[in-house]
């Protein structure tokens, strides 16, 4: 559409409103990003950098730690995001039922984890999942396990804990988006479907899901970005090590280590960070494609 032609004063006012944000974004986001792109082609230690062409990219393919971190990040992403989105959707649909009692209570309870502080929840998880901790005791009392699980010492279970923790924290957050979107779905559509004899599950798959598709896409993209950048949880759970034996090392944690822990290697760490950029780009694009394809059928 054609834009309403604004007169000159209005044009200026428009720029004035967005100028502070643009200046800040330019300074603290766009400039650093371009800089880091440039850096990713530099090699050397500390600030002594020289142009290395594709040397860093070559190094990536031969770096077992990087490959480990990449694999871990992928596992977190592929398992965690679908679980969380599905749970959030189910809770939202259940809570959107006006005949349900204690809805407000349930809603607040499930949303609560995302208001907690990062440090609280990582500490709580660490203490709850200690070898003699409350979770192991409960599982043993229920005879689900025979001996305590070393949640943080076993590479497999350490990953499980990370996935559990992020899911615990962010499911309620996503649920609120869906609940809000469900609010805007015209009630009479469901009533019409009931009168047409459409069963409940079909109402969910044929009405709710398509109606929520834009929100689902949005939350999936946001969650993807969040998971691929995973840092806070693993850093706190493992005291910064990404252990045991790198089993919870993520790309962000590896970048942090490359930059601030080991002998700083700015160029190489910038290259790793651009791996995340590219991954997020590809995955977001794929998600858009999936969402669009379903619309056609």
């Amino acid at each position: 559409m054609a834009y309403a032609r604004l007169d000159r004063r209005e044009q200026l006012t428009g720029w004035a409103f967005i100028a502070p944000a643009l200046v800040l974004l330019g300074l603290f986001m766009i400039y650093p990003i371009i800089w880091s792109l440039w850096m990713s082609f530099q090699v050397g230690k500390g600030m002594n950098l020289s142009f290395g062409g594709f040397a860093n990219i070559e190094r990536l393919t031969k770096d077992p730690v990087f490959l480990r971190a990449l694999g871990n990040t992928f596992i977190f992403f592929i398992i965690q995001v679908p679980i969380m989105i599905t749970l959030a959707l189910l809770f939202a649909v259940a809570l959107n039922d006006s005949t349900l009692r204690f809805r407000g209570l349930f809603r607040t309870a499930i949303f609560l984890p995302c208001v907690t502080s990062l440090i609280a929840y990582s500490t709580i998880f660490k203490s709850m999942f200690a070898t003699d901790g409350v979770v192991n005791q409960a599982l043993m009392a229920l005879h689900i396990i025979g001996s305590p699980i070393g949640w943080f010492t076993d590479p497999f279970w350490a990953k499980v804990i990370v996935i559990l923790a992020i899911t615990w924290r962010w499911t309620g957050y996503n649920m609120i988006f869906y609940l809000a979107a469900l609010q805007n779905v015209d009630r009479s559509i469901y009533e019409a479907a009931r009168i047409d004899g459409v069963p409940a599950w079909a109402r969910f798959t044929h009405i709710t899901i398509p109606m929520l598709k834009p929100v689902i896409l949005f939350t999936t993209v946001i969650s993807t970005i969040g998971t691929l950048q995973l840092f806070d949880e693993v850093y706190n759970f493992t005291a910064g090590s990404g252990g045991p034996s790198d089993s919870t090392l993520t790309l962000s944690l590896y970048i942090y280590n490359l930059t601030f822990k080991f002998m700083p290697s700015f160029g190489y760490s910038a290259t790793v960070s651009w791996v995340i950029v590219v991954l997020v780009g590809i995955l977001s694009f794929l998600q858009f494609l999936v969402a669009r394809d379903r619309r056609r059928t």
């Binding site: 603290f28 986001m29 400039y31 650093p32 990003i33 800089w35 880091s36 850096m39 970005i225 691929l228 950048q229 840092f231 790309l251 962000s252 970048i255 942090y256 930059t259 700015f266 760490s269 910038a270 790793v272 960070s273 651009w274 995340i276 950029v277 997020v280």
Partner: peptide
């Protein structure tokens, strides 16, 4: 991601 601009 933030990681990409952290160093600069």
């Amino acid at each position: 991601p933030f990681a990409a601009m952290m160093v600069p």
